[in-house]
Design a protein around this nucleic acid. Structure first.
Lengths: 341, 341
DNA sequence: TGTTAGCACTCCCCTTAAATGAGTGCTAAT
DNA sequence: ATTAGCACTCATTTAAGGGGAGTGCTAACA
């Protein structure tokens, strides 16, 4: 059987209607809703075909039709290539200069949630490929050294080190110069054992501190790698009856709080993002069990220096794909303009 | 009417039983449950009295009794003064040294949630009265200065400042000395305009930078003041049927995500905490609308240097007050031992 | 005077049954 | 190819009934 133009139109009408109402949609509705001027009986025939082809299905005998994952997929794909959406307002959202990535991301998650009425998540940029920009040791207290580590993109990590020996200013200065000379501008995988050995040797009796700093650097990177995720609008779940029953809501909320799975999800979206960087996962496509009744739209953004992060929007399968994709596009554009290269 | 010993015992039995089951408890149950050896009829009479006195009530005619807020209050008060709970294990929770307050708090919230099966929230210590410990300016890039601000208790804030003039190392060193000399050891409200004027004068052409740093300090403090709140275990709400219906769950989850109200709640608990620092709010006592069916137990902890924070545990009114108070006590003790003075 | 047994009564809740109605599949006519 | 018509299905709603847990009250008992 073949998916002719009329079938497409009907399918689209079914999906549209279902997106609006959340209720299974019957033939009579379609017959009036579209400009096809077909009777409900004809629609019924076509819908039977569409069901056979797997685009829609009945939740139970003699109920209206609901789009299947396959149906959504078709709809989304069609929509994606068709529309190059208008850039939404949202310009004011990013106007203020941010020193802090964290604040920016939190805010972004919140705005998105507010805007779309879905749950949102956003992963911080990953610094894997970033270069070390600056290291500074300072004596804060007797026996306490503060190590400040700045990574490309102005991601800053602090680390308090405890030392036994008393360090005078001169020694500290030397160590600072040593560390910066060797490590500055290197990315993580460029720091090797040989280099560390040389540095330790040059540090003489203070080699222990060098070790600690290196550890701190490694830890800072690692901390950045098991990436931070910010979420917002999880309670929007309750807006959609098909997700709001106790069982599902509980699982979803849990998933959102634990963030572990979200991380993997975003990670995957991030790595396999294609040209546009926008990806749509429908139902089981996410691999996350608790989200099998949801759809997820993700967008990868870049902040220069190879740092990439991912935004995800989670809603019911009948989410307004159109709007969501548009919104994400707009944000991408904004971020690119501000930080992109 | 008077609350004699037997009435107390019966009331306690009713509450205990209700805590366990979550169901209204009838006279027959009590008659068997307690060691009073009274028939259900007698219990009925007593329960009628207790109801008249406002300690318990029936959700509907001919149902068992449920403790009222007043009833809970009595129970909790009695329990609080009676028990000086055993210090729970939980020792291992805090063993690792933490450089980062944030990590510690998050972890703590999580452990608590896990342990109690309720939702938890924890506010970061407030630095209002804290003293400035250390300031360091470093050149990170051409035109970019990193200001690191350390506050008592090793709370560290970073701030990137943009500068137009090129600063050589010597100037930076001078500025560092200047700033530290003047500001070191001062608490926020001890920094006044006169002092700033003097510093600016001494900084000469670089007075602009001094201004910026001062701003950064102020901002760092302010950021710390509209306090961070970490939550965990919000999905535990779903464990308790009386909170899990769509309406209530949605509101609660929202409250927990927005954190605004939680902040006020913790704030209040913090300020009016009495001797022990542990406080119990039952039902409407919290002032937070969405929590009118919950109880909240809060504990204020101190981390030295006048920095105080508050932990809160939110559960159904029938929460296991005993265990919760015990757990919080234990944590308080631990924190005191580790950081307290 | 306090305690208990007995009994009628209340009311939630669960189950069952019937009514409703939206929607389908099929057939025959156009 | 399209449509009208009809029988049929089945989730959902509504009503009714039974069960049962629990109460309040009264009368009897120690």
């Amino acid at each position: 059987m073949e998916l002719d133009e009329r079938k497409k139109k009907i399918l689209q009408a079914v999906i549209r209607n279902y997106l609006e109402t959340g209720e299974p949609v019957g033939s009579r509705t379609i017959s009036k809703y579209t400009d096809l001027n077909l009777s409900s009986a004809t629609i019924r025939n076509e819908m039977a075909d569409l069901e056979e082809m797997g685009y829609i299905f009945q939740p139970h005998t003699s109920a209206g039709r609901i789009p299947s994952d396959k149906g959504y997929r078709l709809y989304v794909d069609a929509m994606m290539e068709e529309k190059e959406r208008e850039v939404v307002e949202m310009r004011d959202m990013l106007v203020e200069r941010q020193d802090k990535m964290e604040t920016l991301l939190k805010q972004m998650a919140r705005v998105l949630a507010q805007n779309t009425q879905y749950a949102t998540m956003i992963s911080a940029p990953q610094t894997k490929r970033s270069k070390l920009k600056f290291i500074q040791l300072s004596r804060v207290d007797a026996g306490q050294i503060l190590a400040v580590i700045v990574i490309q993109g102005n991601v800053i990590k602090n680390n308090i080190l405890s030392v036994e020996e008393e360090l005078d200013d001169e020694t500290l200065l030397k160590l600072n110069i040593l560390l910066n000379t060797y490590l500055n501008g290197l990315s993580i995988d460029e720091i090797n054992l040989a280099m560390i050995a040389v540095m330790k040797q040059q540090a003489g009796i203070h080699s222990a501190i060098v070790s600690e700093v290196i550890d701190a650097v490694a830890e800072a990177i690692r901390a950045e790698e098991d990436l931070e995720i910010y979420t917002s609008g999880t309670n929007n779940i309750f807006r959609y009856p098909e997700l709001a029953d106790q069982q599902k809501a509980s699982e979803l909320i849990n998933t959102f709080e634990e963030k572990q799975l979200l991380g993997e999800l975003l990670q995957e979206a991030h790595t396999q993002g294609e040209e546009t960087g926008i990806q749509v996962y429908i139902g089981a496509e996410t691999q996350v069990q608790s989200m099998k009744d949801c759809s997820v739209v993700t967008a990868t953004y870049e902040l220069g220096g190879g740092m990439k992060g991912t935004i995800g929007i989670v809603g019911p399968k009948r989410m307004d794909y159109d709007k969501v994709v548009g919104t994400l596009r707009a944000i991408q554009t904004q971020l690119d303009e501000l930080y992109g290269k």
